[in-house]
């Protein structure tokens, strides 16, 4: 695993770790932002079908410049392509895939994740903010496995993994695993379990940057 010189994982590393954990044949929805990188990191020999909630199963790579189609976009309203074997459908069918538990993995960005897997990723709750939720609440309520890709702390250094979310919630007890620039952390019934640390990160250092107790769950045999 490559890492930046400070021993932390890059966004691409985080995406590669998340892609590694997605099983062959999975149907996956990628959120806007860092999660979009996961599509470029699927290991060779694995087949993963990407879903976008605006009505496409089988999202392909970005189009070559000049061949963008305004009627073929993803949930971030960016131009995409469709793979051979793709399917288009209307919004109620698309969200039946999400809410009916048919999708295997949802990869989302986050503002905060709590020790019990509560997710806050849609609103700062500030009075003059324009509230906008999109499909986030549907994804966390319906997809079988919900994983988060995010920086471990805010730009000002505050933990984003917290005892209780201070921002408005997207869902309660919904996150299964968190990938950050510092670690891979599972949300379990026993608490937050650190499974892997970036090369330059110690457990003590990770705990200091995390707003809730961590259990050292590294596999020391490797």
């Amino acid at each position: 695993m490559t890492a930046t010189t400070n021993g932390e994982w890059t966004r691409h590393d985080m995406a590669r770790l998340a892609a590694r954990d997605i099983h062959d044949g999975a149907y996956v929805n990628l959120g806007i932002g860092i999660p979009e990188l996961v599509a470029q990191c699927v290991p060779a020999g694995q087949e993963v079908i990407f879903h976008t909630e605006n009505g496409l199963l089988g999202v392909g790579p970005s189009p070559v410049p000049g061949s963008e189609d305004p009627e073929l976009i993803n949930a971030g309203k960016k131009p995409v392509t469709a793979i051979s074997g793709a399917a288009y459908f209307h919004h109620a069918d698309s969200f039946a895939m999400i809410r009916g538990g048919h999708l295997d993995v949802s990869v989302l960005g986050a503002m905060q994740v709590s020790a019990t897997g509560d997710l806050a990723n849609w609103s700062t709750g500030e009075p003059d903010a324009i509230p906008a939720v999109g499909g986030a609440m549907d994804l966390v309520a319906g997809v079988k496995r919900v994983v988060v890709l995010m920086e471990h702390t805010t730009k000002s250094g505050d933990p984003k993994i917290v005892a209780r979310c201070s921002y408005p919630l997207t869902g309660i007890r919904v996150v299964d695993r968190i990938y950050t620039n510092l670690a891979v952390i599972d949300v379990t019934a026993e608490g937050l379990v650190a499974r892997e640390l970036a090369p330059g990160v110690t457990f003590e250092n990770l705990q200091a940057k995390t707003g809730a107790p961590l259990i050292d769950g590294r596999d020391h045999r490797s």
Binding site: E53, A92, D128, P131, V133, G135, M137
Partner: peptide, 19 residues
Amino acid sequence: RAGKIALELVPQGTLAERI
């Protein structure tokens, strides 16, 4: 922000299913 339009915010899947 000027209070000149009302908003009912609905999760996207709930909006689709309500329709």
